[in-house]
């Protein structure tokens, strides 16, 4: 940090992009990046509460969890994993496009990322509908043919809580991508300050990572 410049001494052309509390673009970008990573750490622990509950109940009721997991739709879960991994790749390329100041590619890639997010949500919706018709929704229509349905209901509660919270994150992500694509049309991110694209990318990758864990834990626990 060799930041001795006072407010009025800024002369570089990028200065208009720098908020008043920062000395230069570099410092601003570093702050945003660090802030995003810390936000992601809080997200890890936010989801972590559910992962803890999952771990505890799976260790208490391994058989019920395996049996319940058997009723999830692995095909959709697996396809959705592939979709998210692919969209994450596109997002990484989008960040690169912004870095290279390639406006057209950036907009296309952002839209593609959002598109795959939407596909994910559609598949998820189909799956939820199937869960509903199979009477797997706790409280609302849960019907489990066992004298002791409690643990299976807990499994499906955690399944809906975890995938639901994840779906909320995907939805937010889709809106972020669409907004950024809209903003990118003004050339906002291709003049040197692509930090918003970068941290949106971090967010999208994080949501992807959460799903990477949800897939084996929720879908594959009972399919042997």
């Amino acid at each position: 940090m060799e930041a001795t410049a006072s407010l009025n001494e800024r002369t570089e052309p990028t200065q208009s992009l720098v908020a008043r509390q920062f000395d230069d673009l570099e410092q601003q970008r570093g702050a945003a990046e660090l802030g995003m990573w810390i936000f992601l750490a809080t997200e890890v622990l936010f989801f972590g509460g559910l992962f803890l509950a999952y771990t505890v109940f799976r260790s208490l009721y391994p058989r019920d969890f395996a049996a319940a997991s058997h009723h999830t739709i692995v095909l959709i879960g697996g396809m959705n994993t592939a979709i998210l991994l692919f969209s994450s790749t596109l997002m990484a390329l989008a960040v690169r496009a912004a870095e290279l100041r390639n406006q057209t590619t950036l907009i296309r890639l952002l839209l593609a990322t959002a598109f795959f997010g939407i596909v994910f949500m559609v598949l998820k919706g189909i799956e939820y509908y199937k869960d509903w018709t199979d009477h797997l929704v706790p409280v609302l229509n849960f019907d489990w043919h066992s004298p002791n349905p409690g643990p299976a209901q807990i499994f499906f509660w955690l399944y809906f809580a975890m995938t639901g919270l994840h779906a909320i994150h995907i939805t937010v992500g889709i809106f972020v991508m669409l907004t950024l694509a809209l903003m990118a049309r003004t050339g906002k991110f291709t003049t040197g300050n692509y930090t918003p694209i970068e941290i949106a990318g971090l967010y999208w990758h994080f949501v992807d990572i959460v799903w990477i864990f949800l897939f084996p834990l929720l879908y594959l626990a009972g399919h042997r």
């Binding site: 509460g49 559910l50 409280v139 409690g150 807990i154 955690l158 809580a161």
Partner: peptide, 23 residues
């Protein structure tokens, strides 16, 4: 690092009160 876990815990309590799933 701690507050998100509280948020999740309180969320679970509230949903538990509404739906009584039983965790």
């Amino acid at each position: 690092l701690a507050t998100p876990v509280l948020a999740m815990t309180l969320g679970l309590i509230s949903l538990e009160r509404i739906w009584g799933v039983g965790i």
